[in-house]
């Protein structure tokens, strides 16, 4: 039986290895090469941001890492073990919150916990309450999903992803649908939570500035087929402010790099959208 303290404290997370992963989507007539020989190593506790224009395979890569999709070739190792299925140690957060409207807030957060053995109801509830507190939603335990704002929904989704205590958090443009102010609030929240809970995070975004603000490392993709082109490490101290000059400098560099790979439609990636 795990105690609450054990439940809340991370067991040492470990790195992910994406090893020469390729994936092509075949339709009746066409074949879309979504990922071409992508390799990436993520250290434990690292915050990695993936940026790149639309359609370069970021979501596909994240889904493969999550185990929701299978690569055509290559493999993903988590903990040195090949990923074949989704697992609780890698939680995914989607662009739309994907919260379940038939459950209230706390039961949404408890959904994953209920699938975790060795916890009784009381402990599950305490864990769920802890994470809802962490994202600042103590007062909305019994609220229905439709009563929440977009930002609150993403906070609940974050709490839901954190609650089973995954070692890896996979976030697919989680804040893209939110307004700038709410997003800024969430940037500081996610940095605080990441520091407190020491997760490994892979964060997909269109927004280079967001990537520079959040990531230890920013990985730049190019489309058709999706490939990793460049990587930037961002050694700025935390917490970082999205509006700071340093973040702006890094994001400028990354945008410059990105523009090389998309001569046709430069507006698909912007420094701050």
């Amino acid at each position: 039986m795990t105690t609450l303290a054990e439940e809340l404290n991370p067991v040492s997370p470990e790195k992910l290895v994406v090893d020469a992963v390729s994936k092509t989507f075949r339709a009746r007539r066409s074949a879309v090469p979504a990922l071409d020989n992508v390799s990436l190593t993520v250290q434990e506790g690292e915050f990695v941001c993936l940026v790149g224009p639309s359609g370069c395979g970021k979501s596909t890569l994240l889904n493969i890492i999550a185990g929701l999709e299978k690569p055509d070739s290559g493999q993903v190792l988590a903990d040195g073990k090949a990923v074949t299925n989704p697992g609780r140690e890698r939680m995914m957060m989607f662009q739309e919150s994907a919260l379940f409207p038939w459950l209230d807030v706390i039961n949404n957060v408890m959904f994953g916990l209920k699938l975790k053995p060795n916890l009784n109801h009381q402990e599950r509830r305490e864990v769920a309450e802890y994470y809802l507190h962490l994202v600042g939603l103590d007062k909305f335990l019994e609220a229905n999903v439709h009563e929440l704002s977009g930002g609150m929904k993403q906070r609940v989704a974050l709490a839901r992803a954190l609650a089973p205590n995954p070692r890896v958090l996979l976030m697919d443009e989680p804040f893209a649908a939110l307004d700038a102010l709410t997003r800024e609030q969430l940037y500081s929240d996610i940095q605080r939570i990441w520091q407190e809970r020491r997760k490994t995070i892979i964060f997909v975004t269109h927004n280079v500035r967001e990537a520079a603000c959040l990531g230890d490392r920013v990985v730049v993709f190019s489309p058709h087929p999706g490939r990793i082109r460049e990587q930037f490490s961002i050694p700025l101290p935390r917490p970082r402010d999205i509006n700071s000059v340093e973040v702006a400098q890094y994001s400028g560099e990354i945008v410059k790099a990105l523009k090389q790979y998309l001569p046709a439609t430069p507006e698909t990636v912007t420094a701050n959208s």
């Binding site: 999550a66 185990g67 929701l68 989704p86 697992g87 609780r88 890698r90 939680m91 995914m92 989607f94 739309e96 994907a98 379940f100 959904f111 994953g112 699938l115 975790k116 839901r160 089973p164």
Partner: peptide
Amino acid sequence: PIYARAARTMGSRGLH
């Protein structure tokens, strides 16, 4: 479909 995907990442399978 996103509901089922989200559930799968949380460890839900088949009948569950």
